[in-house]
């Protein structure tokens, strides 16, 4: 309850705290949540292998792990839309509407999770302990990264939906805003999410890297969609500049 009160009072602090807690669970909790048991079949792709794989990694726990991973990685990205929702909502509905927004957002990623997890299982069956699938995903992510379609999804992520103020519509709007926001986010980042999951090892580090990339690219201002090499390093630029103006030369303009 204390946490919920905190979420109601200071969403930024609460969101980051929740994200950190989930990261800790993912890094230190049951390994099945992190899908590290996936690479079990040395006997090739077969019904038995699939059965064994699913016994060791039940689909339900894989989906829970997937959901937790989405929340850990994406919650900080939701601070700005949640701030917008809070400003627009009746005071007593702020928390519930924020939660519905997150729920709608998570719903999109869970739906996307079904084909993506299937892909991960298939890759573990067909290419156990191989970097091949991860390499393909990485290549795809690179191409996707600089495509106009990806930029279009990122741009749409900047849309601020106005919510109805009263009645059930207010809650429905919060949920659909989250769902739509999730759609743009899945569109922009599905390959970046897939890549760490396909790695036979080191996928935690890759997940952290993908988180930073995704946070950074969502902070970038909308741009004209076209093919272009754009590393979208806004988060890095922000951190370097803040270090300069607040630590190295506090109060002084930078060059």
């Amino acid at each position: 309850m204390k946490l919920l009160r905190q979420l109601s009072g200071s969403p930024q602090a609460a969101i980051i705290s929740i994200s950190v807690i989930i990261w800790v669970i993912l890094l230190t909790g049951p390994a099945s949540l992190g899908l590290t048991h996936c690479h079990v079949s040395a006997a090739g792709a077969s019904a038995e292998s699939l059965g064994m794989l699913l016994r060791m990694n039940p689909l339900s726990s894989q989906l829970v792990g997937w959901g937790l991973m989405v929340l850990a990685m994406m919650l900080p990205k939701l601070i700005i839309p949640i701030q917008t929702i809070r400003l627009q909502s009746l005071k007593r509905h702020r928390l519930l509407q924020s939660l519905l927004f997150v729920l709608g957002y998570l719903a999109t990623w869970m739906l996307a999770g079904i084909p993506l997890i299937s892909l991960i299982i298939a890759s573990n069956l067909l290419l156990p302990l191989s970097y091949g699938a991860a390499a393909v995903a990485f290549g795809g992510a690179l191409i996707w990264q600089f495509s106009p379609l990806k930029q279009r999804f990122l741009n749409r992520g900047h849309e601020h939906q106005l919510l109805s103020a009263f009645g059930w519509r207010a809650f429905q709007d919060a949920f659909t805003y989250g769902f739509r926001h999730g759609l743009w986010c899945v569109g922009a980042g599905w390959l970046l999410m897939l890549f760490p999951m396909l790695l036979p090892e080191g996928h935690t580090v890759a997940m952290l890297a993908a988180t930073v990339i995704m946070l950074s690219e969502h902070l970038e201002n909308p741009r004209f969609p076209r093919w272009e090499f754009n590393p979208r390093l806004k988060l890095l630029r922000y951190m370097v500049t803040q270090f300069k103006i607040r630590v190295l030369h506090p109060g002084f303009p930078i060059r």
């Binding site: 902070l219 988060l235 500049t241 803040q242 303009p253 930078i254």
Partner: peptide, 12 residues
């Protein structure tokens, strides 16, 4: 400092 340094302070 965020004003003094301009949009670059926020990575822009």
């Amino acid at each position: 400092p965020d004003w003094l340094a301009g949009p670059a302070a926020n990575g822009n």
